[in-house]
């Protein structure tokens, strides 16, 4: 079932879902469906129950500080407005059908921006396999998955504050343990900690 067929079936089942096809310019030809974050859960329900895409294999988070770059990878249809000028966070879902043996069907959902409006509905209620992967994206990218049953950091420790996979992440320079401190490390430490009085 091609992405075009899926999109037709989705439009029949959910006329207001706001699903659009994004072409992939590369040789892999894995086209994707851009789904409104608000209707993501409905779309997943239809895909699982009606179209038999029963295996959500992979969930990827992507940081797009520059929206034009995102449109270069997933081309918008002609006449369709390009994405907002500001950056956003994106979550990609790769779905397969174990009974029909097809896939991947690629879904993309985007947050409004990278700061406060960083919510995307969690699909754990439909696909349990997203549980840890959504936690990972929450941890490393800072996408807030609304409705996730247990949204905590997973790879970084709980007290950690930033999101290391974001493109503008700057590693801290005040790490306090280094077994054999040497040149560059000592230099950083000197820059960070004021000299003792």
């Amino acid at each position: 079932m091609s992405a075009e067929t899926v999109i037709e079936r989705l439009r029949e089942a959910l006329p207001d879902a706001g699903v659009s096809l994004r072409k992939n310019p590369g040789p892999s030809c894995q086209h994707s469906l851009l789904v409104n974050a608000a209707s993501l859960l409905d779309v997943c329900n239809v895909l699982r129950d009606t179209l038999a895409f029963d295996l959500l294999s992979n969930v990827t988070g992507v940081d797009w500080p520059d929206a034009a770059k995102a449109d270069a990878v997933a081309l918008p249809a002609e006449g369709e407005g390009t994405s907002s000028a500001g950056g956003f966070l994106e979550v990609l879902y790769h779905l397969y059908s174990t009974s029909r043996r097809e896939g991947p069907l690629v879904l993309r959902a985007r947050t409004v921006d990278r700061e406060k409006q960083n919510q995307i509905p969690s699909v754990v209620a439909v696909y349990r396999s997203a549980e840890f992967q959504e936690r990972e994206i929450f941890d490393l990218y800072g996408v807030e998955f609304t409705g996730h049953p247990d949204l905590r950091r997973i790879l970084m420790w709980d007290e950690f504050e930033d999101h290391p996979m974001r493109k503008d992440y700057v590693a801290p320079d005040d790490y306090d343990y280094e077994p054999t401190p040497h040149d560059a490390v000592l230099e950083k430490a000197r820059a960070h900690y004021p000299a003792a009085p």
Partner: peptide
């Protein structure tokens, strides 16, 4: 590689 994406 050319601009695009792939899952394998």
């Amino acid at each position: 590689p050319p601009v695009g994406e792939a899952y394998a």
